[in-house]
Nucleic acid binder design. Structure first.
Lengths: 247, 247
DNA sequence: CCAAAGGATTGGTCTTGACCAAGAGGGGGG
DNA sequence: CCCCCCTCTTGGTCAAGACCAATCCTTTGG
């Protein structure tokens, strides 16, 4: 009766709260500033802490907030523009933006990767792990799967694992003449080991970039790169002009 | 004392639960099959419903599950491989995979887009909305922002809004000789209007692809494409061989 | 025979309250 | 003066229960 007809589709509280907080972040807070703690915020907005947390989780997913246990919730800086193209294997690595460490073992690749390898799912592969740093922060961790057949020059040699062997595999790969690649991006949640590398909790949202490199007609390597979705915007190369035609 | 030393870092219940469910999905369920309802699952595993839901949300984020209110939770099919490159504007649209409808208005672009336009943030732009369908399902919705200056041929003409005008803008754009593009992918959460187009709830995780098209040295158009993160794997072109050099 | 009404089912939202674990910071002992 | 330990703060996890909203399906009435 007296109520205006605004509530045709009632908005969830956490959704409205997210909007309010988002506006407040734009107008009343600066990057790095710390917000009041969750209990106080919940009280201030007159909602349960669980509801408030639902709003905060949304904002964290969008990269607006950063939360750390024992510390507090801070306003996140804009996402890094992280260049991922045309293929990390060919990327020299600019200063303040480079791949670090490259451990290597003989772990079997996951089924989804094994299916891409030309040598069959049981062929031996090198598994090289490396981590990408930007502005002093880890933004990605990658598993590179290289069939032994792709780098025959070092098979059997350098039997020790670790970063020395990993770098050797990468060196051999760079000698190959890569003919092309296939690439896919999808959303995932960080496994426990990836989360540790990325300084996040298990299950944190990540962008998974799967790159398949071709050489001499076969799959020379498969890279599965896991980027922090909260801090990264993936960009694709510095736009060498591409031929586009009219429809 | 008597406890074995397994619990160095106790695993959250929802995380363990997610693993158990994930394994069960692989071995005991088929795509499309419906799971027991949340209350029963929670009882079966001896956890609170909130905890069970936390595990289900993770699995949904990973595209393993699909949940619909009033219906139930079903096992999701593998993600679609959706081709997004080298640029939707140049994509003819295969059968069963096409852009539909193209409504057009004069809405002002968001600040992040306005900043990319060469004509300044206040220049008039066409805002074309279209939706991409795959296998009968909506997988993406896009807002295309085209400065009036980019399509002078139709300024003032076809003053009516709607899909006719939208298609006219697209037609004019195809006549341009595009010189290149910049592209970025990031994680976002669906706004209310996007969620409606994608048949999802507001806040659903989406992959936002921002493409900037260049023509004659200026930004001819900016496309913001919003893909359902639960059902899509973004792929980039059918791999025209790329020149890669050795390090 | 079809359409409207109504109830049962299911996931979505919200509350209250409790405890746990990671950091930060202060105070005391070496 | 430095380092260790304790405590406090903060976000993370978990429980139990209530109600809401979308959907499906049966029943009822035309």
């Amino acid at each position: 009766m007296g109520t205006t007809q605004v509530d045709a589709v009632p908005e969830p509280k956490y959704w409205h709260l997210k909007t309010v907080l988002s506006d407040a972040l734009d107008s009343e807070f600066t990057v790095g500033e710390i917000l009041p703690n969750e209990r106080e915020l919940a009280a201030r907005f007159g909602v349960a802490r669980a509801t408030l947390r639902q709003a905060l989780e949304q904002l964290e997913l969008e990269g607006r907030l950063q939360r750390r246990r024992g510390v507090g919730t801070t306003v996140a800086p804009p996402r890094f523009g992280v260049d991922v193209g045309p293929g990390e294997l060919s990327w020299p690595g600019a200063p303040d933006d480079a791949w670090q460490t490259a451990d290597c073992e003989e772990a079997a690749p996951p089924a989804s990767v094994a299916a891409m390898l030309s040598e069959g799912p049981d062929a031996p592969v090198h598994s090289v792990r490396r981590t990408r740093m930007t502005h002093g922060q880890p933004v990605a961790t990658e598993m590179l799967y290289v069939p032994h057949a792709s780098v025959p020059g070092m098979s059997g040699i350098e039997s020790a694992g670790g970063s020395a062997r990993g770098r050797a595999v990468l060196r051999e790969l760079h000698r190959l003449e890569l003919e092309g690649q296939e690439r896919a991006v999808e959303l995932g949640s960080a496994r426990a080991d990836d989360a540790r590398q990325l300084d996040r909790l298990p299950g944190a949202p990540v962008l998974v970039v799967t790159t398949r490199y071709f050489a001499q007609g076969v799959t020379a390597a498969v890279a599965v790169s896991t980027y922090r979705a909260d801090t990264c915007r993936l960009t694709f190369g510095d736009t060498a002009p591409v031929a586009l035609m009219a429809g």
